[in-house]
Design a protein around this nucleic acid. Structure first.
Length: 283
DNA sequence: AACCAGGCGCATA
DNA sequence: TATGCGCATGGT
């Protein structure tokens, strides 16, 4: 990684990151965990993504195994945390590779990192995601930010905080075209804004406890709660099962499948399996 | 032009 | 416990 306009720090950072972290921008941004990063044209035909998170924005490029971040200098510690750079994903891949299919999936998904996303953004985004396809989820989330977030830079919007969304009506949300999910988002925002649901302390309940707590919200069932816990609370043992995962489990495991086989990193294993199933479309 | 999408809540058996 | 249905909308 490097800081824009500062070659000295840039080299230092690139070296510091190299050993522990495997990071693939494509796999990390296309594995379905986040909705506000978009691939953009890169000079020289390389890989580049732009996006906004945690109140900041960044542009990342990857070439020759080196990831470069262009972002505000004061945000760099934030991004290091966001990309979960302290965790050894090579070790996790080894640990979850306990059967043939997961070996293949984990190899294919090497470089996926479970982003440390904002808790509320993850919860709201995955409420919106239910029974929806990824392009449309991205569109709805973008519109939510554009209409109700803060414009932190020209054309760049923050994710609106729960306090903001809690004050909105279904009519005000109608431009999102979120359908029956709109009231769910508002109710979740009210619960978080009022403190009825304390997202800050949820992770301490553990994977199971946090999921059960989240499921008390209307429109939040086992799957959405698992995603909110995995992606928002970084509870890496959560194992969300959606239609794609059902297909993968049916064709590669069977009725007696238990995600605990990948514990305590079932959530990372889930990302490998999901990404593999969606992109490779293997049966 | 059907079929389906990172589901949920509720009714019915 | 296990299915089945409607929900709102648009991507493929």
């Amino acid at each position: 990684m490097r800081l824009r306009g500062n070659e000295a720090i840039s080299r230092h950072d690139a070296i510091a990151l190299a050993p522990a972290s495997e990071l693939s921008l494509t796999a990390t941004f296309e594995c379905g965990q986040c909705f506000r990063w978009n691939r953009v044209e890169a000079p020289g035909g390389g890989i580049a993504y732009e996006g906004a998170a945690l109140g900041g924005r960044a542009r990342l490029t990857q070439a020759g195994g080196i990831v470069t971040i262009d972002a505000a200098e004061e945000d760099m510690p934030l991004w290091r945390e966001y990309f979960d750079l302290e965790l050894d994903y090579a070790d996790i891949r080894r640990r979850v590779s306990v059967d043939e299919h997961m070996c293949r999936a984990a190899e294919f998904g090497a470089g996926i990192r479970v982003l440390r996303q904002d808790k509320w953004e993850a919860l709201a985004s995955f409420i919106i995601s239910q029974c929806n396809n990824i392009p449309r989820i991205k569109k709805i989330v973008e519109t939510l930010c554009a209409l109700f977030g803060d414009e932190t830079a020209p054309g760049v919007f923050s994710f609106p905080p729960p306090e903001r969304v809690a004050g909105l009506t279904e009519a005000e949300l109608s431009p999102l075209r979120a359908g029956y999910r709109a009231p769910y988002v508002i109710e979740a925002a009210k619960a978080v804004a009022s403190g009825a649901l304390a997202l800050g302390g949820l992770a301490e309940l553990g994977a199971r406890g946090a999921v059960e707590e989240l499921k008390k919200l209307p429109g939040v069932g086992e799957k959405v709660a698992s995603c909110a816990a995995l992606f928002g609370l970084h509870l890496l043992d959560c194992f969300p099962v959606d239609t794609w995962m059902k297909k993968a489990i049916a064709s590669h495991y069977g009725a007696d499948f238990d995600p605990a086989r990948f514990s305590p990193y079932a959530g990372v294993a889930q990302q490998y399996m999901f990404y593999y199933e969606r992109v490779k479309g293997v049966g």
